[in-house]
């Protein structure tokens, strides 16, 4: 469909250039503090204020990374951690979406499920570990399950709450035009809660990384969390720094992926 461009579209067409220079500012501005921290770290390390065994220099950490990579130990450790987070996040978020939708949309679901899930939510994450190990042993399943538990609750909570607060007037208007059941959900409720769903997913991803490290610190023979505990036992502070920095970078990257999805969804639905 074509129509004459209105002032509104003309304004929007002029915006991208300023937008690009702004995003450059954001990237450069965001890099300032990490660079300053790096400089401070290097200075403190080279002045010898703290012993090297407690504070290795940035170069030593880099070398430790290169050393692990050359021996073929770095990528498998990263890979297995990413895989665990991805699987646990996927299962947990899917279950959270499903149960959140049931509790948010149906009165019966709310009455039956909400109290139980609310109680389970208050159980501290690490309380599950002994039970998971007895039931599921030390394999992948127990770790993925723990991460899924962590990812489940943020999604469940935000989805059920958001569905309960969808504008009643909009729902009523859509019903008055003959929409019902799944068509109503797809047309009104789902688009209305999408922004909250995405922020729930974001929280869930952060939780997933948290639970990953908890799982790997306690019972693992591979992964970034295992690298942390193994390095602690061997006194390899450089590797501890390496694992922490890797967790920060990968966590930020995965969060940025959801951020891109969020921006796309907001443009599409909001």
């Amino acid at each position: 469909m074509t129509h004459a461009p209105t002032p509104a579209t003309a304004v929007r067409a002029a915006r991208p250039r300023t937008g690009r220079s702004r995003s450059l500012t954001v990237i450069l501005g965001g890099a300032i503090i990490p660079l300053v921290l790096l400089a401070v770290w290097q200075t403190v390390a080279s002045l010898g204020i703290m012993p090297t065994s407690q504070l290795p220099s940035p170069v030593m950490v880099w070398d430790a990374g290169v050393d692990l990579a050359q021996r073929g130990l770095l990528l498998p450790n990263i890979g297995i951690s990413v895989q665990r987070v991805f699987l646990g996040f996927a299962f947990g978020a899917a279950a959270g979406l499903f149960l959140g939708a049931i509790v948010g949309l149906s009165r019966l679901g709310d009455v039956l499920l909400a109290p139980t899930l609310g109680a389970l939510r208050t159980v501290p994450s690490l309380a599950w570990v002994p039970l998971l190990i007895i039931w599921l042993k030390y394999g992948e399943v127990s770790k993925v399950t723990l991460i899924a538990i962590g990812a489940f609750f943020p999604v469940y909570t935000t989805v059920s709450a958001a569905l309960r607060h969808v504008d009643r007037n909009l729902v009523e208007a859509a019903r008055a035009f003959g929409l019902n059941g799944f068509a109503l959900f797809r047309t009104v409720q789902l688009p209305a809660v999408l922004p909250s769903v995405i922020s729930g997913l974001r929280l869930a991803l952060a939780q997933a990384w948290l639970f990953l490290v908890a799982a790997e610190l306690l019972a693992a023979s591979m992964g970034l969390g295992w690298l942390l505990s193994d390095s602690q036992n061997n006194g390899r502070t450089d590797r501890i720094f390496l694992a922490i920095i890797l967790l920060a970078i990968i966590g930020k990257l995965s969060d940025a992926l959801i951020g891109i999805f969020a921006r796309w969804a907001n443009k599409r639905w909001a």
Binding site: N169, L170, A173, A174, T187, V188, R268, W269, A270
Partner: peptide, 9 residues
């Protein structure tokens, strides 16, 4: 309705 009640998206 008194309010337009349009779907904003």
């Amino acid at each position: 309705f008194q309010e337009p009640r349009l779907l904003p998206w």
